[in-house]
Design a protein around this nucleic acid. Structure first.
Lengths: 193, 193
DNA sequence: TATTGTATGCTAACGCCGTTAGTTTGTCAA
DNA sequence: TTGACAAACTAACGGCGTTAGCATACAATA
């Protein structure tokens, strides 16, 4: 009963904390309610559903990732910008794996809000590529390639798929980024031809 | 009661069918039991747990993917082998997305059986790269890069993350594969230097 | 052929989960 | 002071995986 000034932000914030510390897998509304000294049913005064909460956390994650990426490329150009961007992405995935996972469980189909979130995902890499002489169409493709490499690498490492061989994972990561930069340079040549 | 000759294979097979047609998300032991005309509790005469069933389906998926990949590279070399391998991988991910998802939810940490499954994942790409003059260590890294690109691309496309721009996703895919081949050629040069 | 053991089915139940309906109560504005 | 509304509550529903304990069909053995 003892009414506390529970904000919507408090709830999302607590949920994020719980997911980061206990893992996305074991997160539940009932535990969230418990942590807030509330019954699970009372949560529905603040959220519409578990899915909606999930989605909001996803937006938070995307905005955090974007922030880190934009900070990383500030004042940098070309390969230096790309490497710095990749590093920021990689670090985010490694340091906040549970929050990172939420991003991809987002149903990207739905509504308009998600469309702007889609823009947030794309913007940093598009900016980082600005120093290369590429056509707009090339950039649209390359943006996808970059995100594929980064996401693929992070999620496979997280899933433990990189334990097969006794070579340093960070070295593999650097090679992946170098591969993308090679592709950038190659595309640039093609655009100028 | 009417005892039917329920095989372990029957159960896994039915589970796979259900996951492919209804989606991994909506799969449950109770529905599986229903489809087999059995009560959920009776399933435990055949499986140890939901997790174990999940894991076995993951092994199946890995072996299917491996089979498709090995068939794709048979009699091919160098870039042709790589492209063909990538196509087989891509096709698998697009045609059987739900089964593909099971692979990555596998906990790669655990036991020995998973270690051999890890080998199954790695073998096709290692074979496909055999035509390039690379050091063993280079191959270990490049194998990770390849799988990152492929998995990243497939899972992001599946998640709907590639709708931002009106450019063909298959074109983006080809660019990604071309990028990997560039990296292969570049690594080859370095190895020879 | 009769018996016995095991594999395979059953029911009932537990403790989770998200969610809804209906009710009470604290708080703030008129 | 009163009335309205927001925010808590309790109770319940149907879902989930899972366990315990019981019944039965079938196969091997005596």
């Amino acid at each position: 009963m003892a009414r506390q000034g529970l904000t919507h932000a408090d709830i999302i914030g607590t949920a994020i904390e719980m997911i980061e510390s206990e893992g996305l897998h074991s997160f539940s509304l009932r535990e969230l309610a418990g942590r807030l000294h509330i019954k699970a049913a009372s949560l529905y005064n603040h959220i519409r559903s578990s899915d909606e909460l999930h989605t909001e956390i996803g937006y938070y994650a995307i905005s955090e990732l974007k922030k880190a990426q934009l900070a990383a490329i500030a004042g940098k150009e070309r390969s230096e910008a790309i490497e710095s961007l990749a590093d920021a992405y990689y670090r985010f995935g490694k340091e906040r794996p549970e929050i990172y996972k939420v991003i991809l469980s987002l149903p990207m189909v739905k509504n308009d809000a998600i469309h702007s979130a889609g823009f947030d995902i794309v913007e940093p890499i598009m900016t980082a590529m600005a120093g290369y002489h590429l056509t707009r169409e090339q950039m649209m493709h390359l943006q996808r390639v970059f995100r594929s490499i980064m996401h693929g690498f992070i999620s496979q490492e997280e899933a433990g798929c990189f334990r097969q061989f006794p070579v340093d994972v960070v070295d593999s990561y650097r090679m992946a980024v170098r591969g993308f930069i090679l592709l950038l340079e190659n595309s640039e040549k093609e655009a100028q031809a």
